[in-house]
Design a binder for these strands. Sequence first.
DNA 1: TTGGGACGATAACATATGTTATCAAGTTCA
DNA 2: TGAACTTGATAACATATGTTATCGTCCCAA
Lengths: 194, 194
Amino acid sequence: MLFHFRNIFPQLNPYWDKYLPFQKRLEIPPKTILLDEGKVSENYFFIEKGCVRLYFNNNGSDNTVQFFFENEGLTSLDSFLNNTPSAFSIETIEPSVIYQLPKKHVNKLMEELNNEPGFTKMMMQVMSTRQTHYINEFVSIIRDTPEQRYQNLLNNKPHIIQRVPQHYIASYLGVSTVHLSRIKSKLAKGKLHF
Amino acid sequence: MLFHFRNIFPQLNPYWDKYLPFQKRLEIPPKTILLDEGKVSENYFFIEKGCVRLYFNNNGSDNTVQFFFENEGLTSLDSFLNNTPSAFSIETIEPSVIYQLPKKHVNKLMEELNNEPGFTKMMMQVMSTRQTHYINEFVSIIRDTPEQRYQNLLNNKPHIIQRVPQHYIASYLGVSTVHLSRIKSKLAKGKLHF
DNA sequence: TTGGGACGATAACATATGTTATCAAGTTCA
DNA sequence: TGAACTTGATAACATATGTTATCGTCCCAA
């Protein structure tokens, strides 16, 4: 949400640079938990190398909300802003290199940015982009069948399918691993006709 | 999103009052469309009396995203802010009295508010509340069965069930009217045992 | 006043999806 | 190298949900 916007709003780059030294570099294996559902989000994460997912528990199994890759930043926003227990967990999928910036520094950065003209506009743009993203996911889950959602993923974000183990894809699409296998097999058969 | 906050941030009330004369009062029957999916959202609506729903089309049938009642305001936010085609339609459910404020006035109001200290913070709070709401809906649709979602509605927002025709409830829960009938009948039978 | 439309319940059937179990291939690590 | 784990495919069965059709009630407008 913040370091995303390095180079997108170049006049703000000095601010990002000033805070780089406060980040902690983590080299961590797959399935390392960065934030545990129910805890308050205390850090902002930025991915240098690897791959991470945001997910929530669902009677023992889990559902993935979003995947994150190199040069993307994330946190559990609601928890981070409002100090409420996070509805989501965050964990690595691959061996990863993560930069971790504690909340107190982010807050300080935000205060400094408040004096920068255009900051409100930028924040509204950022928040509105996020909101649009969630709304689209929301609509897609209701409107599209799992098969259509898989096709969308194939068309729009093939790197996710190539890179992420299939059971995480299933948990992202909201179906069982068995059913995702069925979908793939059905699509494969369909293609043979052409 | 705006007039919601009358009296919640009292120091801003003069601003709201200043813009009240620009609103147009509409007295309209049920099923009146206030915004059509695909069009750009040009107005902010405030409900004096009646009931309205935000929904999107889904191969001929439709899904309701949210219901709005007296003293609530709404628009299709993404479309309103970014001048993009709205993903949603808005229509009345009951005979309603609606105040309609054109976008140019809202924009002017926003510019004036920019000079008010605390405005950025308020906007972030507003946006983050909205986002939390969508995230919760999103999680609920994935995690909860339609039956659980109906129970949640009964427990948390019984006024909706009392007031809104059942087929809209079904379209909100994301099930067919037939299945919602099944759910109700099942719950009714369950209750007889006690 | 009446006839059509809106609303809701229910049955019968079709389809989508979950669950459990089994098998196979690839990877990791002691 | 071999055991344990991860990943993925598939079959068989169970359950959830959609679709279509029918019926009854209520209400409003011609």
